[in-house]
C-alpha cells in the first residue's frame, strides 16, 4: 500500500479521535482510577446490605429489616425499558421467582422502581407485575434513595441478600452477556445461599436501560 493512500484514512481517524476526546471529558470514574484501583460506589457484596424503607402501591411501608431471617431478592424494574419488559413479558422473571421458591419457599421478591417519572404512579408497577403473573411486591423509590444506596444502574439490576442481611449477589439478571441467557444468576445465588455456600459468581455486570433517577 502506498504511503500516500494512508494519509486520508489516518487523518480521518486522528480527527475522529481528537473530536471524541474533545467532546467527552474524562469521566470521574476514570479520574478516580489514576494511579491505582478504587472501589465502586453502592452496596458491597459480602457486607451488610443498606437499610431502606419504601412504600408499595397501597402505601404500606416495607423495610429490609422486616424480612430478616429470609433471603431477599431485589430487582430494579421499569416497564418503560425494553430490556426489563423483555425478561418480564417473556416469563423469565416469573420463572426466576418460581425456581427460587422451589429452592426456598420463603424467598422474598421486591421489585423496585426508581424511575423518577413513576413516583406519583405507585399502582402502575404493581399492576404490571400482576398482569405478567410475577409473584412479588412492587415498591416505589421515586427519590432514588434505595437505588443509590445499592448502586443500582440498570433495569433489570438484581441483588440477593441472605438471611443474615448480607449482600450475597449483585449484578445481571442472567448470563445473556456470555452469549446464552441460560443461567439465571439470582436462582444460582439463592441456591448457593440455601446450601450454605457463597454464590459464584457473586458479582456480575448488569445490563439494560439506565435507571432514570430524579435529578
Amino acid at each position: 500500500m502506498k504511503p500516500s493512500s494512508l494519509i486520508l484514512p489516518v487523518a480521518t481517524a486522528v480527527f475522529a479521535a481528537v473530536l471524541s476526546f474533545s467532546v467527552l471529558p474524562v469521566p470521574a470514574a476514570a479520574q478516580s482510577q489514576q494511579g491505582g484501583p478504587t472501589r465502586s460506589s453502592g452496596a458491597k457484596v459480602g457486607e451488610t446490605a443498606p437499610a431502606f424503607t419504601l412504600k408499595d402501591a397501597s402505601g404500606k411501608e416495607h423495610s429490609l429489616a422486616d424480612y430478616k431471617g429470609k433471603i431477599v431478592v431485589l430487582e430494579w424494574m421499569n416497564e418503560g425499558c425494553p430490556v426489563c419488559r423483555g425478561v418480564m413479558e417473556d416469563g423469565l422473571v416469573a420463572k426466576m421467582v418460581a425456581d427460587s421458591k422451589k429452592v426456598d419457599a420463603d424467598v422474598v421478591f421486591l421489585f423496585i422502581n426508581s424511575t423518577a417519572k413513576d413516583a406519583d404512579r405507585p399502582e402502575k408497577s404493581a399492576k404490571y407485575l400482576e398482569k405478567h403473573k410475577i409473584n412479588g411486591t412492587a415498591l416505589i423509590d421515586g427519590e432514588g434513595t434505595a437505588g443509590h444506596l445499592f448502586g443500582a444502574k440498570t433495569t433489570p439490576h438484581c441483588f440477593v441478600i441472605d438471611a443474615k442481611g448480607t449482600l450475597a449477589y449483585a449484578g445481571a439478571f442472567d448470563n445473556e452477556k456470555e452469549g446464552d441467557a441460560n443461567v439465571n444468576y439470582v436462582v444460582s445465588a439463592v441456591t448457593a445461599i440455601k446450601a450454605g455456600k457463597t454464590p459464584s459468581p457473586a458479582k456480575t455486570q448488569s445490563y439494560g436501560c439506565g435507571i432514570k433517577y430524579k435529578k
Binding site: V26, A29, A30, Q31, S32, Q33, Q34, G35, R39
Partner: peptide, 8 residues
Amino acid sequence: SSTGPFGA
C-alpha cells in the same frame, strides 16, 4: 472493582 474506564 469498577466498570472503568481505567486511567493510566
